[in-house]
């Protein structure tokens, strides 16, 4: 009997340490377009991100209206003409970290990872692969990555008048500090 209790106690603790979901409501994702004419950058600091540390399932979700630009007019055009926030309010990613087993969430360090999954923007879903890092520091994990997306792949077209101002491929920088546990 005592043995059984011990087994359950171990099971209990094992469950809580291994099968953890880490998440945040204030992750940040930036988009960056660089051309000879101008650089355009926008930040969204209200990104939702959930990571299952056991299976490697990784999800992001953000509201497109949460991107803030340096110029008010850029923000308006982004929402009105390009990402069409009223029609497509959210952008999401649903994927898996391929090498999650190599990440030791208990010990500090930078663990290179590869993520593969469905990136949905502007109503178009594309299978995307990105490399990045999971950085563990003081017991807290941060998911970081930098990759590019082609506007044409997501049916976002740029009119001739601003062709020189907006790059065809956009650099996306992810930095989500997964400070919450469930």
């Amino acid at each position: 009997m005592k043995y059984l209790i011990f087994v359950f106690a171990v099971l209990l603790s094992a469950k809580t340490t291994l099968a953890q979901k880490l998440y945040t409501k204030n992750g940040s994702i930036s988009i960056f377009s660089s051309t000879k004419m101008e650089d355009i950058k926008a930040d969204n600091n209200q990104v939702l991100c959930v990571l299952n540390t056991q299976t490697g399932e990784l999800q992001f979700s953000l509201l497109n209206k949460g991107f803030h630009f340096e110029k008010a007019l850029m923000e308006e055009h982004f929402n009105e003409n390009y990402i069409e926030s009223n029609k497509f309010p959210k952008s999401t990613f649903k994927g898996t970290v391929a090498d999650i087993s190599k990440v030791n969430f208990a010990s500090d360090g930078t663990y290179p990872i590869t993520v593969k999954g469905d990136l949905t923007m502007h109503g178009v879903t594309k299978i995307t692969t990105a490399s990045g890092n999971i950085i563990v520091k003081d017991g807290k994990a941060t998911a970081a990555s930098k990759f590019t997306a082609k506007l044409a792949d997501y049916n976002i077209s740029i009119p001739g008048a601003v062709k020189n101002n907006i790059s065809e491929s956009i650099e996306i920088t992810v930095n989500c500090n997964l400070d919450q546990k469930m």
Partner: peptide
Amino acid sequence: DTTDIMRLLE
């Protein structure tokens, strides 16, 4: 599962 948590957050 992860999707449920995401739905909750959304």
